[in-house]
């Protein structure tokens, strides 16, 4: 018994030292510590009644605000999506939590299929934006009607 006690203390001490070193190593090892929040977006994107509805839909997911103080700015891009057309959709997005606050979805309809929002001599392409007030939440509903022709997100927000 008496012989085992010092050995146990030694083993416990060694385990504590190893744990401490491992903790320091892990704590001192991390460089970029990124936290991504998964958001499942679902809902519908449409145009006003009577408007032409052909073409692909370009969607941009953005932070509503980013930065702090005098360096704060709106609409920091997170990711781009491309939908086959208007109507219902469901997409998953990973939102980096350190880069900004709030979540905004902007979309426009690419009627002529050139990949660019409007162009000289081309027909107007409708756009729309919506801020998802319920963020952060894993399931978010999007109901967006594209009504503003040739408008970028910076014009439509806030």
């Amino acid at each position: 018994m008496n012989r085992q006690a010092p050995q146990r203390r030694l083993a416990a001490g060694l385990a504590a030292i190893v744990s401490l070193l491992a903790g320091i190593c892990l704590g001192a090892c991390v460089n970029d510590d990124t936290t991504l929040y998964e958001v499942n977006l679902s809902g519908t994107i449409d145009v006003a009644e009577g408007e032409p509805s052909g073409g692909r839909v370009h969607v941009e997911v953005l932070h509503a605000r980013s930065g702090a103080g005098t360096l704060a700015y709106p609409l920091r891009p997170i990711t781009d999506l491309e939908l086959d057309g208007l109507g219902e959709f469901a997409e998953s997005v990973l939102v980096p939590m350190e880069n900004g606050e709030g979540l905004v979805v902007y979309a426009w309809l690419d009627r002529d299929g050139d990949g660019a929002l409007c162009a000289p001599g081309a027909a107007p392409e409708p756009a729309g934006i919506i801020e998802l007030e319920d963020f952060p939440a894993h399931e978010l509903e999007v109901e967006l009607v594209l009504t503003e022709p040739c408008a970028g997100p910076e014009i439509l927000y806030p």
Partner: peptide
Amino acid sequence: LLADRTTVIRA
């Protein structure tokens, strides 16, 4: 050697 950590928060 630089180690990066990524945490994904899912439902």
